[in-house]
Design a protein around this nucleic acid. Structure first.
Lengths: 215, 215
DNA sequence: TGTACATCAGTGAACGCGCGTTCACTGATGTAC
DNA sequence: TGTACATCAGTGAACGCGCGTTCACTGATGTAC
């Protein structure tokens, strides 16, 4: 029997195959979108038969669920380490953009078109709060003594989403604006809506960011 | 033979059936998302056999193409009539939001997650320009003598997307910000990312809009 | 070190399903004389 | 007004496809004595 904390060869192999399955899944998603993801196609690509994958995932749904959670986790980790490196709100924005450009479909798996009736896995709400906390930290550092905006004041009575984070009204407001505005530019860029318009998405992103920081 | 401008009963019937097909298609999209759209399912819902639809559309792709174009058209018409009624930029924003809430999946068909490799139908670019022109009009009316922002100045040399619209730099900048910011709040709201956060999406939307107008 | 057994990865066949699409055909509607 | 013909909507059968998933099985790997 394996000692706690040690992996048997079989366990190692298992996690390795599970990882490869997910890698192929991400490739497929990048190539044809999440709705085209197929267990059989992944198996074929790995040189295995379709049913073999059922040793590793209970089914398609379980795989997708884990991909979504992984995407959230990856984003949170990225922001965490960016913040940990001493970066401010602007640094977080650039890190977020870089993360999204790395794999647009991964971004869309979190923030893209929802499938009606589908609910995101439960553990994602915890990771969402984690991400929000990072933003609130950065906004608080930037804004601790800024005057409250009218909407910021309103938010003081509607701050369930902020948990027990001690962010002042101006920071609450800015964190939400950060989220919605960055998502706005970024998702349009990722979806290709700026191509052929003759403008540089990076500069538009930077302009939106500046405006947000200067508010 | 029918006189020009008059429809024969057969023609009338044809356009009527085509319309019903699209109505059912929209219902399906609203219910299960665009990727689940199926010709056979539409036919069944209309009490017809699957192949019957091929009298009206060359195939699934042609139907989707027309739905996308219709969505763009509908949005442009909405904004056009809003502007025509004398509404300013704020009015356009509210009209856009109302239009999106009316059928979120229709919004996402335009601005949602792109399917890799898929290209939007050609006629949509013309409608996009039309929409952009409406925004530029409203921004120019609001900003004709505002000082140019640094990014606005940069845009003077990168304004292919604005065609020959005589908008000043500040208006160019504001039109882009309008687009990206409104899309940001709105798409997160439509995707349900604010549910359970304890805040009112309408107020967040209004706050973003105010901030944009006050810039 | 060798043997007996248990565990588990992977296979191939099969099921049922729904999809898009084609084709030859029926029957109703409209047109021409 | 009636008859002959053309147009066209819709059907049912069929094709090939890929999907998710179940199941009984083989063969390799690991474990216990």
């Amino acid at each position: 029997m394996a000692r706690a904390g040690t992996e048997t060869p079989r366990e190692r192999y298992r996690t390795q195959v599970r990882t490869e399955i997910k890698e192929r899944a991400w490739e497929q998603i990048a190539t044809a979108g999440a709705s085209a993801l197929s267990l059989n196609a992944i198996a074929k690509q790995m040189g295995m038969s379709g049913p073999a994958l059922y040793r590793y995932y209970a089914g398609r749904d379980e795989l997708i669920t884990e991909l979504i959670t992984d995407a959230y986790r990856s984003l949170a980790d990225t922001l965490h380490s960016t913040a940990g490196a001493g970066e401010d709100l602007a640094g977080l924005a650039q890190a977020l953009r870089a993360w999204a450009l790395e794999d647009p479909q991964r971004y869309f798996l979190i923030y893209g078109t929802p499938v009606p009736g589908y609910h995101a896995p439960d553990d994602t709400t915890a990771i969402s709060s984690e991400i929000m906390a990072i933003l609130l930290d950065a906004c608080t550092a930037l804004t601790s003594d800024s005057p409250a905006t009218p909407f910021g004041t309103h938010l003081e009575d509607h701050r369930e989403w902020a948990g027990d984070h001690p962010a002042p009204p101006a920071a609450l407001h800015r964190a939400l604006s950060f989220w919605t505005r960055i998502h706005g530019v970024l998702s349009l860029e990722l979806a290709g809506h700026f191509t052929g318009m003759g403008l540089d998405p990076a500069r538009l992103f930077a302009a939106e960011l500046d405006d947000l920081l200067a508010r």
